[in-house]
Lab assay of single mutants.
Amino acid sequence: PAHPYDRLKTTSTDPVSDIDVTRREAYLSSEEFKEKFGMTKEAFYKLPKWKQNKFKMAVQLF
């Protein structure tokens, strides 16, 4: 299930529990994912792991 970005980011005051914290981005809706990352999930997962992590750090999901 998708969760709002505000509850997934590492600085959230009301974090979602029971998620894989190493894959926070996977819980974003497709729309919100595209808004935050500027690309689709499919394109994101084709990137090298280090680049994925760099993007995730930039949007507080790492």
Rank of each mutant, 00 (worst) to 15 (best):
P1A: 11
A2G: 10
A2T: 15
A2D: 12
A2W: 15
A2L: 15
A2H: 15
A2N: 15
A2K: 15
H3K: 03
H3D: 04
H3P: 07
H3Y: 15
H3N: 05
P4R: 06
P4H: 06
P4Y: 08
P4F: 04
P4E: 06
P4T: 06
P4A: 10
Y5E: 08
Y5L: 05
D6C: 12
D6N: 01
D6F: 01
D6K: 00
D6M: 00
D6G: 00
D6I: 00
D6V: 00
D6H: 01
R7G: 07
R7I: 09
R7L: 09
R7C: 14
L8R: 00
L8Y: 07
L8W: 05
L8E: 07
L8V: 08
L8Q: 04
L8H: 10
L8N: 05
K9H: 08
K9Q: 11
K9E: 09
T10I: 13
T10C: 14
T10G: 04
T10E: 06
T11R: 02
T11W: 03
T11G: 10
T11Q: 07
S12K: 05
S12M: 03
S12N: 03
S12P: 05
T13E: 13
T13Q: 13
T13A: 10
T13P: 08
D14V: 03
D14C: 13
D14P: 05
D14I: 06
P15T: 03
P15I: 06
P15S: 02
P15C: 11
V16M: 05
V16C: 10
V16K: 03
V16L: 09
V16A: 09
S17N: 12
S17L: 15
D18N: 13
D18K: 05
D18F: 08
D18I: 03
D18S: 09
D18P: 07
D18V: 06
I19N: 07
I19R: 02
I19H: 02
I19G: 04
I19E: 05
I19D: 02
D20Q: 02
D20N: 10
D20E: 09
D20M: 07
V21C: 12
T22E: 07
T22I: 10
R23H: 09
R24S: 06
R24N: 05
R24K: 06
R24C: 12
E25D: 03
E25H: 02
E25W: 05
E25K: 03
E25I: 09
E25N: 04
A26H: 05
A26G: 06
Y27Q: 04
Y27D: 04
L28K: 03
L28V: 02
L28H: 03
L28G: 01
S29A: 05
S29N: 10
S29G: 07
S30G: 11
S30Y: 12
S30E: 14
S30L: 11
E31T: 13
E31G: 09
E31W: 10
E31L: 08
E31H: 12
E31V: 10
E32Y: 02
F33M: 01
F33T: 01
F33D: 01
K34F: 15
K34D: 08
K34I: 14
K34G: 11
K34E: 14
K34L: 15
E35V: 09
E35I: 10
E35A: 11
E35W: 12
E35Y: 09
K36A: 09
K36E: 01
K36W: 13
K36T: 15
K36C: 13
F37E: 00
F37R: 00
F37H: 01
F37L: 09
F37A: 00
F37P: 00
G38T: 03
G38M: 09
G38Q: 10
G38N: 10
M39T: 01
M39F: 04
M39R: 01
M39E: 00
M39C: 09
T40K: 07
T40I: 04
K41H: 08
E42A: 12
E42M: 12
A43I: 11
A43M: 13
A43G: 05
A43T: 13
F44E: 00
Y45F: 09
Y45N: 03
Y45D: 02
K46Y: 06
K46L: 13
K46F: 10
K46H: 13
L47S: 01
L47Y: 07
L47K: 00
L47E: 01
L47R: 00
P48K: 02
P48S: 03
P48I: 00
K49C: 14
K49T: 11
K49P: 07
K49G: 08
W50Y: 09
W50H: 05
W50Q: 02
W50I: 02
K51Y: 10
Q52F: 00
Q52I: 01
Q52L: 01
N53V: 13
K54L: 14
K54G: 08
K54E: 14
F55V: 10
F55Y: 14
F55P: 00
F55H: 11
K56T: 01
K56V: 04
K56D: 01
K56P: 04
M57D: 07
M57C: 14
M57V: 11
M57K: 13
A58P: 00
A58M: 14
V59Y: 12
V59T: 07
V59N: 10
Q60Y: 15
Q60N: 12
Q60S: 10
Q60W: 10
L61F: 06
L61W: 13
L61I: 04
L61C: 14
L61E: 03
L61K: 04
L61N: 07
F62W: 14
